[in-house]
Design a protein around this nucleic acid. Structure first.
Ligand code: SF4
Ligand code: SF4
Lengths: 144, 144
DNA sequence: TAAGTACATGCTTTAATAATGCATCTTAAT
DNA sequence: ATTAAGATGCATTATTAAAGCATGTACTTA
């Protein structure tokens, strides 16, 4: 019961982008240097962030990516649902559970999952920037 | 992002026990036959359920286990927290995350986790017995 | 228009963890 | 004693996430 690094890397990317001046593009190399995370994995995350419309990517020389919307418009539940994958939190098939037709548990867990995401829906990328100055300072000591 | 089979097996065990007449002991073999799940894994689950005080186990011939309390007294959040392990839903260490001191995200996720378990706290084992008759029928067609 | 740089895409390999298997011990009833 | 039950610890397998690698495609700029 833990979100994937994949998902966290995506959130870290959004946080990084949010600290940049508007219009400024970041690159994959820049992000994985800042966070000391592997380029190959981040590569896939960035790609999905683009597909899902959270960032705008640009190929080629001087390419990179930036936020596709204001931080306050990017909801955490949306981001996490997409990156994490929105499957049930209990697997009642494969293999099939014999009490499935009579089981209330799966409905309760599904409702719990909804409650979790509903809570996250009250936060946006903007909510993650309270310590923006500290974040910028951390990043500034890592770039060159 | 999914609960372990281990946890689900524990919940299934409690459901099974709740359908039995009070005082009647069940055995590991009985449960794994009913659900068609491996004995070795269930073994560990049962053991923990006993350690945590959800069931009372008895060794030796004619041994087995039964619920340690009324179904309405056994809260789902307690059971799942214990069986699932109550660690944070995001791992900010190992490897260490460079923005950890300035990061709000982990607090939000921790709060989301609390919201999830708070929701589960409104349900008990009793809540899982609405279709008790169906459950008993399913089990009765599997024992011998 | 050639060279270079950045994301896109697909496949492979490794690492981490859950799930399962197995052997043996301990306890209790008969 | 024998038998049947859970307790305990270690080994193995299966699943999934994470990371690596190779190459393709788009775009910029000299
Ligand atoms: S017990 Fe309920 S929740 Fe668990 S696998 Fe069976 S049907 Fe799904
Ligand atoms: S970004 Fe925040 S939540 Fe994610 S690993 Fe770093 S400190 Fe933890």
């Amino acid at each position: 019961m833990q979100i994937k690094k994949y998902t966290d890397y995506g959130l870290r990317t959004l946080i990084y982008l949010a600290t940049l001046p508007k219009g400024r593009l970041a690159t994959i190399n820049e992000i994985c240097a800042a966070y000391e995370i592997p380029r190959n994995h981040l590569n896939k995350v960035i790609h999905q962030l683009g597909k899902e419309g959270f960032i705008i990517t640009r190929r080629g020389k001087n390419g990179g990516f930036q936020l596709a919307a204001e931080p306050a418009e990017i909801r955490l539940d949306h981001v996490i649902r997409r990156l994490e994958g929105d499957t049930p939190w209990v697997n009642c098939h494969s293999p099939v559970c014999v009490i499935e037709p009579a089981c209330e548990l799966k409905h309760i867990l599904a409702a719990g999952k909804r409650v979790f995401y509903d809570y996250l829906a009250s936060y946006t990328l903007h909510s993650l920037l309270h310590k923006r100055n500290e974040l910028e300072q951390i990043f500034s000591t890592r770039e060159f």
